[in-house]
Amino acid sequence: MTPQRWVYLRKLLSGFPSFPSSFSSCRPRVFSSSQSAADNMAEEAKKLAAYSAVDNNVQNNHVVGVGSGSTVVYAVDRLAERVRQEKLNIVCVPTSFQARQLILKHGLMLSDLERHPELDVAIDGADEVDSELTLIKGGGGCLTQEKIVAGCSKFFVVIADYRKDSDALGQQWKKGVPIEVIPMAYVPVSMTIAKHFGGEVSLRMAVSKAGPVVTDNSNFILDWKFEHTHNWKEVNTAIKMIPGVVETGLFVNMAQQAYFGMEDGSVKVRKAPVN
């Protein structure tokens, strides 16, 4: 643990009650408090990244692509705050039903790609970001619409906390690459991916209902747990060519900038390498 993180944890823990050391039954509470402090740190990091990205990349009269996930919630909070305070004229295009509901909840102007096919900026989260800003996305199931919106934007910005920052994909995110597939094709697609690229492919199952997860596009999601680093551009193209594949959660050469909320309360900004 870095000295900065220890100081930050102590600040977070200072608000929790202390107990005499003689009470052995208090030990589970200390663990619980530490876990709560770590969760609070991650949430604060998400907020810092989201606020910084919105402040630095959204201007008046912009059409903004709004991503999905827990970090984007903070981005929409800040966007709505700036619209109110600065009287901005902002149009929002969502990547999912969740994003659409966030936009409506905050009273922001909702649109779509039919009316606004070109976006000034898109802001979205990621499950993992490598050193070249290659992303794994789709942990929440919205990868296809997220990639469409990102592809329509002039500038694509990623927001995340320090846990999503990796040198190479698979270092932090252990659940694999999400792949959206037509339902009737999930078995042959799974077999083809495992045969050509190795690893393990599984159909993502729902938690609160029986059966598989169903996307906003009424498709299934496969999770491919790869065994080693690949040439992600080539792999992404090859998987997309398999009949039945709708889209992959590999975002290659798409993000121009990433904002990471860090453990010490700072924000790290990383730009994509110049090809």
Rank of each mutant, 00 (worst) to 15 (best):
P3N: 00
W6T: 11
V7A: 08
S14T: 04
S14K: 14
S14G: 14
S18E: 14
F23A: 00
P28R: 00
Q35N: 02
A38G: 08
N40R: 03
M41I: 07
E44I: 01
K47Q: 02
K47S: 01
L48H: 05
A49D: 07
V54T: 15
N57E: 10
N60H: 04
H62A: 00
H62C: 13
V64R: 06
A75T: 11
D77W: 13
K87E: 15
L88P: 15
T95Y: 10
A99K: 13
D120F: 09
A126G: 15
E128H: 15
D130H: 04
D130Y: 01
T134K: 04
G139T: 11
C142S: 13
L143P: 02
I148F: 05
C152T: 05
V157C: 12
V157F: 08
I159L: 12
D167F: 02
W173R: 14
G176F: 13
V177S: 11
M191H: 14
T192S: 15
F197K: 09
G199L: 02
E200I: 13
V201S: 06
S202A: 09
R204V: 09
K209F: 12
T215A: 01
F220W: 11
F226P: 03
F226C: 06
H228V: 08
H230W: 04
T237C: 08
M241F: 13
P243Q: 09
E247I: 12
V252E: 10
N253G: 13
M254C: 11
A255N: 08
A255M: 02
A255P: 07
Q257I: 10
D264M: 04
G265D: 00
V267P: 06
N275M: 07
N275I: 08
